[in-house]
Nucleic acid binder design. Structure first.
Lengths: 144, 144
DNA sequence: ATTGAAATTGATAAGCCGTATCAAGATGAT
DNA sequence: ATCATCTTGATACGGCTTATCAATTTCAAT
């Protein structure tokens, strides 16, 4: 593992220590791969890691990603029929504008909306860890 | 079926007509039940309707709720291990604040956010038909 | 009203995703 | 280095949703 992601490694070790869990080669490997992504599914990571480590089991990936959730490094989010594990240490969230005609996806960010989301959350005494905003519609070409 | 929900019935018939689909007793029944809810799972509707119609199959409910999604009356949302079908005709769209600790869902509406969404869309020359906004986090109880 | 092609239904098998199980192996406190 | 404990990998299992298919229903054309 590169000496980037030192902070996250430290956070993981702290969690492991607190819960009498052990640091394994697999956990290091999966953490390293996970931190390079903004979000990933267990299956996708399985295939990705299979190249360098063909014997890494899918169950181990699921277990480890769930461990990262417990450790506060990841957050599970259900999307389609699968679970996306979001890297919550990753900055720069973006939202999506999706054309239901041609499936084109435009990414955008809007600070004002983010601010209002925080406002809604605090009004309800929630602490937001992540969010998802998707606007569905037709792009100019598909409207005609 | 009561003569409330006439508009939605009309929208469904229009969709059916366009796609060479047929209006059945089951579809009417399920539409009627669906429109009384803000959101519901297929399983929940199955049990609810079993009382008045014990032979209505679960597969039919899934198929019909997916049909409603195609017809623009419903929107599927994956939550936990199940799919929630949201009634998007229900007194305006509402968004969700979801506690990842206890699974509690708080619904909210925010005109200002909706307005900003329109703004983002028009900036990208999109016409929005629907949207989805989910804020994930911890409620006050689960934060501790 | 009857007919008949096409769609729909209900029952259930199958599929997919994620978790549980468990023997074999790895870890780390002593 | 030892050894209790945790972890892994392979796979069985379970929950949710979709696919399959024979029987039934719908609806447009008689």
């Amino acid at each position: 593992m590169a000496n980037t992601h030192v902070k996250e490694m430290k956070a993981l070790k702290e969690h492991l220590g607190k819960h009498q869990l052990k640091l394994t080669r697999q956990r290091e490997l999966i953490l390293s791969a996970f931190l390079r992504q903004e979000h990933i599914t267990a299956e996708a990571m399985y295939h990705q890691l299979a190249k360098s480590d063909p014997h890494l089991g899918l169950a181990t990936i699921y277990r480890t990603l769930n461990l990262f959730c417990d450790a506060g490094l990841a957050q599970a989010r259900h999307f389609g029929s699968q679970t996306q594990y979001d890297n919550i240490t990753h900055k720069g969230h973006h939202d999506h504008l999706i054309c239901t005609g041609c499936q084109k996806i435009v990414e955008f960010e809007n600070e004002e909306i983010e601010r209002l989301q925080e406002e809604v959350a605090s009004k309800n005494k929630f602490t937001i860890t992540t969010h998802r905003l998707e606007l569905y519609g037709l792009c100019s070409r598909c409207r005609h």
